[in-house]
Write a protein that binds this DNA or RNA. Structure first.
Lengths: 230, 230
DNA sequence: CAGCTATTTTAACATTATTTTGAAAGAAAG
DNA sequence: CTTTCTTTCAAAATAATGTTAAAATAGCTG
């Protein structure tokens, strides 16, 4: 039995989420601003937190940072349409995932389950190695550091997330549209070039010769992938 | 093949949406007020709903709430005023996305696809093995990789899709027309040669001697098939 | 809050792979 | 033996990706 802390200043949203989650068998604790959330997290044993960003008193980003100081429960942020996506993408904040409003009940449940699985699989205490590798490319997702042949390289948030997507599913092909939707969390239309440009930048950083990529390959007409064996 | 329910009291809008969607290969069901929409959703197997907010009899918001009681098909609301946006964002309503009028056909299609992907990805859950084989031919649909006798071969998108169609139904004969319509998702009109050329290319890649195909056989006057036992 | 910097997006263009076309040669059927 | 359907080939058209630079945006720093 897991306990989930729901925090949003809009009471309708809290109660909607409450209904979804209790119907799935979770226990819930409610809070209506960041201050209350922190107090609730101290007094209850909470396994996951759903938190809005825009809130009075103490906003979700600050509250997340504060909570992170003492714990590493998974935190999923709720955001209005792509508003603060970039900040969250940066993830310096310490959130584990985010969902944009308006959201699909199924999606909320799926993400909650996914985070809980990861959290409990790691024993709750440590955030695990969080190390993803493919050949000479290594990504330490805890430290947000990527190395190629041991050399650390610096990536922008978007580049980092694209690489993480590809690296987490080695060999699997993702179309530009899929990449866009996964990374930006928004429907893609006419954004294929944008993805192409970021792919180009990524290649410039991780490949010796970007014109003949060894790892980040294209599958013509279908999409991109990271070579499995490398 | 997905079925989309279009609901708006303005018949011009419904027919415009109908044209966009059917041209993308979706099936449509039409309704002109909330009541009709609910009835239609009960009598058809609907995979996504596009619904106007301002409607006689039963408005889109109430209709959405009603529909949500029994199902979680994705619902995209069509809204005229941006004032309503806040309410929808609030999501108490249960909608998954919204589009403001006047809308861009491309955007409508993009959002519809995006929601369907999300819905089927979450609801479908088990993704199957994604591996199709017939004799020495193996297709990994996730990685988009095809091997013959263990040797990986590279196919173009159209070749890949033709092979996938044939491989998914081993032994079954498909006419050129059927292949064209399945792969191109367009009525075939004088395109029989086109299919023949692609078949030739496929044979060049998967057969030892394309003139005497072992796997990709022709059935005279009827079409092509993949040998079952191989 | 003004100016600076890094990042992201847009746009135009180049390049390359793929798809279509059309015509001619080759098999199968009647 | 003639007709019809299929196969083959290569050139032309199309579409996808790659590249580059500049414009827009966001984030920082003093």
């Amino acid at each position: 039995m897991y306990t989930i802390l729901i925090c949003d200043d809009d009471r309708d949203i809290v109660s909607a989420l409450d209904i979804y989650l209790t119907s799935e068998g979770y226990q819930t604790v409610k809070a209506y601003d960041g201050r209350e959330a922190i107090r609730a997290a101290e007094t209850h044993e909470v396994h996951l937190i759903l938190m809005d960003i825009m809130m009075p008193e103490l906003d979700g980003i600050r509250a997340t940072a504060r909570l992170r100081e003492g714990s590493n429960v998974p935190i999923i942020l709720l955001t209005a349409k792509s508003e603060d996506t970039d900040k969250i993408l940066g993830l310096n904040i310490g959130a584990d995932d985010y969902i944009t409003k308006p959201f699909n009940p199924l999606e909320v449940i799926a993400r909650v389950k996914s985070q809980l699985r990861r959290y409990t699989a790691l024993g709750g205490a440590e955030k695990g190695p969080g190390l993803i590798t493919a050949g000479p490319i290594a990504m330490d997702d805890g430290a947000k550091v990527v190395t190629v042949d041991g050399e650390p390289i610096s990536l922008t948030p978007i580049e980092y997330n694209i690489l993480k997507l590809l690296l987490s599913h080695p060999g699997q092909v993702f179309s530009s549209t899929q990449i866009y939707e996964q990374v930006w969390n928004d429907p893609a239309y006419g954004s294929e070039n944008t993805v192409a440009v970021h792919i180009r930048h990524l290649r410039e950083k991780i490949e010796i010769n970007p014109a003949e990529p060894r790892y980040l390959k294209v599958v013509w007409g279908l999409g991109y992938k990271i070579e499995k064996g490398a």
